[in-house]
Design a binder for these strands. Structure first.
Lengths: 119, 119
DNA sequence: AAACATATATAGATTATATATATATCTTAT
DNA sequence: ATAAGATATATATATAATCTATATATGTTT
């Protein structure tokens, strides 16, 4: 199994933002920082490679739009992207729950070496 | 800031297990798999480097014990390790909450370009 | 004794994300 | 009008956590 990462990737969060409305890069950085209370403070150099990859995967498509005298590159969720959002959200929930189970801990699921071994 | 990783590392989960009782490697693998309902299925080759690093960081210390006719290497939480467990747990909670905030989304924290810019 | 599970170990690959840097445009202050 | 600074996008390279593959030794079952 390739790594496929733990439970979340930043792409999940970006997909979620784009589900709500089309955004351009800097807007995503600011929105993420605000909503996460500064836990996610992406640098541009972190964001753009991720966006480019999402585009390559066909989760988003882009268009340029003139807004207030400035051309900006907007990202828009595709059908594929919506599916990804569902899948990654489900994965995150399962992952977060698993960690909770371990952290609440005690009791259930303790290791008992199987019968074959006398220990 | 070096990467320092997202929100959880496997070390958090291992610290939690060792808070409850001393364990040897394979026992941790099995216990983690059970408690997480197979979300965390560590391979030995994943676990041992992490344990060795935790030992280097002085979060755990080891001792060998004869158990049912077999020598096994037990890992035990140190004082430092207990502090780490507290810190990493707090970090995880903050991180998980931040993701929840983004996924629940809508409304709060939307980007408004500041006044200087007319857009 | 062979086959298989348990148990520990290490080198090297992979992946997500971070850092550093470049660049162009637009805004504000001088 | 121009310099300084913020906005906006981009890319090459580095780093850290984890995975894969492999090795080895001992214990167990057939």
């Amino acid at each position: 199994m390739p790594k496929e990462n733990a439970g979340v990737q930043i792409s999940l969060l970006l997909l979620k933002l784009l589900e709500e409305k089309d955004m351009y890069g800097y807007e995503m950085i600011a929105t993420l920082a605000n909503r996460s209370e500064e836990v996610f403070q992406l640098k541009a150099g972190t964001l753009y490679p991720i966006l480019h990859n999402m585009e390559k995967e066909n989760w988003v498509q882009t268009y340029e739009a003139m807004a207030d005298g400035r051309i900006r590159k907007y990202y828009q969720l595709t059908k594929q992207g919506k599916i990804q959002l569902q899948e990654q959200t489900a994965k995150w929930k399962k992952y977060a729950q698993a960690i909770q189970n371990v952290l609440e801990g005690e009791g259930k699921g303790d290791y008992e070496a199987d019968k074959r071994c006398t220990f």
